[in-house]
Nucleic acid binder design. Structure first.
Ligand SMILES: [Mn+2]
Ligand SMILES: [Mn+2]
Ligand SMILES: [Zn+2]
Ligand SMILES: [Zn+2]
Lengths: 143, 143
DNA sequence: CTCGAAAATCAACTGAGTTGCAAGTATATT
DNA sequence: AATATACTTGCAACTCAGTTGATTTTCGAG
């Protein structure tokens, strides 16, 4: 996906050491074609090395706070994560009601909606999450 | 909010008995000016009567399945609920990053975006959730 | 090499939501 | 009314993604 990102350099810019676990998290998210759950990331890292889940959770939380990663609250209890590098601008997501799989959709222009979405005067709107729910083509074929 | 809803009648239409707990859930959601967490609903019911949390969770889950209530996954782990009666069409929500409070926004027209949001051909899009994150006017005044 | 800070680990915890089953209550049948 | 049946509620124990705090390991500066 984002072959153009130099993760070590990115970490340095953030003042973070390029540790193996941090790099693994970024590489896995960079290769993913969809947003991943923390547990999926953990399991993928474990195919290469021994890691504690707390380490991965803390790294994901830290990356999210720094804006390097986006945390998606698509359904209760399980968060999904995706890279928030310059090559992955924010975009809507599709989630299938049957298999719960998540797809990334193309970015959409919100120009005219943006003003309506601010809500009561005085609110500062920082970003907009769009989630589409339905039945994915795979589950549709099965039915 | 939805004084025009006859909850007993609505339950009858769904083939459900108008039990005190079901009515309490609907009345509380009907009076609410924002989406409520399950725990808030539980506490509000408990100001009137003794209830077990499982009962409330089961009722909320059932109402959600029937489309009488919308479950919002605004942030991990805690769901918010709101009435999905004819007087409350779907609409976007605003959540403050500081106080985590949720506001209901006015419905927006998605006509032109709807087609873009279907994703890969074959997907069936059923509904769209829009969440705006930012800083609410109250938290803004404090800073 | 030495030492302090950053990073990773471990075990124990949290808490929203769930499960299975027993007990209670309304409704239909006789 | 009495009984059978289905629906509803309660209770206790559980799940599991995520968190916390304390301890150990690793790394880089001096
Ligand atoms: Mn995405
Ligand atoms: Mn709302
Ligand atoms: Zn699917
Ligand atoms: Zn606020």
């Amino acid at each position: 996906m984002s072959d153009r990102c130099n993760f070590s350099h990115w970490l340095a810019l953030e003042g973070l050491r390029a540790t193996p676990v941090r790099l693994a998290v970024l590489e896995i998210l960079g290769e993913a074609l969809r947003a991943l759950r923390a547990q999926e990331i953990l399991e993928l890292i474990r195919t290469r090395r021994r890691v504690n889940k707390v380490t991965v959770y803390r790294i994901l939380e830290d990356f999210t706070r720094r804006g390097m990663v986006r945390k998606l609250s698509l359904e209760g209890r399980v968060n999904h994560f995706e890279l928030a590098c310059e090559h992955h601008p924010p975009h809507p997501h599709f989630q299938c009601q049957t298999c719960r799989e998540v797809q990334c959709l193309e970015p959409v222009a919100l120009n005219q909606m943006w003003t309506e979405l601010r809500g009561p005067v005085g609110n500062r709107a920082d970003h907009i999450d769009i989630k589409v729910e339905g039945l994915c083509h795979k589950c549709r074929d099965m039915a």
